[in-house]
Nucleic acid binder design. Structure first.
Lengths: 351, 351
DNA sequence: ATCTCAGTTCGAAACGTTTCGACTTCTAGG
DNA sequence: CCTAGAAGTCGAAACGTTTCGAACTGAGAT
């Protein structure tokens, strides 16, 4: 018995007694094919166990691989831990799937190593960056060199499709809301800044070193509101555990904050837990705000003051952006609207 | 000015004044290339802005696309919501990345539609199924037709690599633990069974219709323990919200269960919240068990009686299985060990 | 001066499609 | 009866690599 090769279109063609092009036309759907011809080809194919055109050959010949790369910055474990991100990706991946595009997970290229990174070598038609550094983003260089079109979520770059949110303005609204309630010592818990890992107090220039755009924008909001945070705590990831640790740091800080602005609801939830552990009442002793508008059932009856985002809408918009890229259209630049929602986690500052 | 084509190896070769094969050898690392030749090629490449070998051509020629497909059954939103799954995927994706393999997210093929599914058409070297139906799994047919090697997590199929857990035995241990504490009316909250969506009471034959292997195994454990659950509640996904809804159903059921066996910690967490809302004390009024051994900070000081799993270890093992598949080795079949861990969410049944 | 043998480099044949223009038929209009 | 055009099918040229065996170069051995 021969080591049987996988059948190809040529095999199907010769068994069906037609030309290779005809078989190709049958599968691709392009070109006019008579019904009986189609039947003949299909019978030959199933007789041979032909599984359809080789994707790799299709990709080479047509120049499209039907794959969109998704750059993941942290360990997946962290990146996908946030239900909001998940909702965005859910919509995005669903839409891309309907467009016949698969989604390839790509670890972010580390700046230090020159080791071959998947972003540089994997076959794809476009890429989506879920976040970007304001400067010195190695992914951008790689994409530029490969001449791959790409979309950026919460960030911008020349030539890229961009989906942004006015998070700076919304955060400033949140801070003003707290100031109107009489708060003067406001702490803030940030998302990762792009540098060191792990939760801790960040000392020094407010913005310097805040590489990730969202972290940076939401910190800059303090300037807009005309107040300085009494302590800035950087979290290692958007997770409840990190929020708990950050809360303990905040509440034991000598500046005695009466309010904590958190850059995500998950962090805010953790800060609430820390407050409770320390016997502080929310919102009577301390006001806490979040971001994203998640539904956290275990926080009930507390209802966070936060900035709700529509994750699905965001995902759909990104997909739309990718579609434009794939069609060779002008890359769209879109900003989603954002308004704060006042819950019962913020109240008048204690005397 | 010409519409400038992307440069190819041939362009690099002719600019460097060497043969195409030499350039290929330079990039692939195979074959002996003298240092000055390498330098010459590299200079020519950077002069042209050559971004490296085309992945699509490489894939066609070498027959390897450096992509592993990951079949997602539900909406990503649900599938990735569970921190445990995330931890598994984190390790898996990391390991595969180190092997130079990207991970392609594939929505599960729906049995009804004959529409072209990505699993059938995407280019990949192997696939991973995170779960499988005991019978009638359309994914298996597609993979067989394509002659793609694949690994199954929590399930088996002839010819496939398999990573399983003795969840049936472990669940039986959990049930026996409850019986020893005097519980006689035990409810159970299952993961999705594979059919209808949404949380609700399931009436009828215990196992019939429980298509997903894990759901089925953990239900079958009741038979092993020699007791029948007083009510079976199927959840729509492994999520806290679903657990809350399930808890309400359980505690308002006429059979008045004194214990609830939940097929995941997230569901158990939700059931605990439901109990609290109804003024029931855990574990004094009702005992609750979980599965997976997650760290749920918001549940403190409650410490679930559960069956801890090592997500990272599982992910590493899957990667190892995939590696074997890619190397053409015998597909490994591995079972991870499992032991129950008694916390303070279970206690003597109330009088 | 000839032979051998590494150490390198080169030619050419795949890999399995898509696609474009050309080539048959066949139908219908004049 | 002739012919324009539509419908269906076919040939052949890419797409950009990898890879195998052959060919070329000196250096040392004879």
């Amino acid at each position: 018995m021969s080591a049987k090769r996988r059948p190809t279109m040529a095999d199907v063609a010769s068994l069906a007694g037609v030309s290779l092009s005809t078989v190709s036309l049958t599968y691709s759907g392009a070109g006019p094919i008579s019904p009986d011809m189609r039947a003949r080809v299909e019978r030959a194919a199933s007789e041979l166990g032909y599984a359809g055109p080789s994707p790799q050959a299709q990709a080479l010949r047509s120049g499209r691989s039907r794959v969109v790369g998704l750059v993941i910055h942290e360990r997946l474990h962290f990146a996908f831990r946030d239900p909001f991100t998940l909702r965005v990706l859910d919509a995005l991946i669903g839409d891309l799937g309907e467009m016949g595009q698969g989604v390839l997970l790509l670890p972010s290229p580390s700046e230090d190593s020159t080791e071959p990174n998947l972003l540089a070598t994997a076959s794809m038609d476009a890429a989506v960056l879920m976040r970007v550094r304001d400067h010195d983003e190695p992914a951008l260089d790689i994409l530029a060199r490969r001449e791959l079109p790409f979309a950026i979520v919460e960030g911008t770059a020349p030539g890229a499709a961009a989906i942004t949110i006015p998070d700076r303005r919304a955060t400033a609204d949140l801070i003003r809301h707290l100031m109107e309630l009489g708060h003067e010592r406001i702490a803030t818990v940030t998302l990762p800044r792009g540098g060191r890992k792990g939760t801790g107090i960040y000392e020094g220039e407010l913005l310097a070193g805040a590489l990730w755009t969202p972290t940076r924008n939401r910190l800059a909001a303090f300037e807009d509101a005309g107040i300085e945070p009494c302590v800035v705590i950087e979290s290692g990831a958007s997770m409840v555990e990190e929020g708990v640790a950050a809360g303990h740091l905040a509440f034991s800080h000598p500046s005695k904050p009466t309010a904590v602005v958190c850059q995500s609801d998950l962090l805010a939830g953790g800060v609430v837990l820390a407050a409770r552990e320390l016997g502080l009442s929310v919102p009577d002793d301390v006001s806490i705000t979040g971001f994203d508008g998640l539904d956290l059932p275990w926080l009930q009856p507390l209802d966070l003051t936060t900035v709700p985002q529509d994750g699905a809408a965001k995902g759909h918009l990104i997909a739309q952006g990718v579609k434009a890229l794939l069609d060779g259209d002008e890359p769209p630049v879109i900003e989603l609207p954002l308004e704060i929602r006042v819950g019962n986690s913020t109240a008048r500052a204690p005397q």
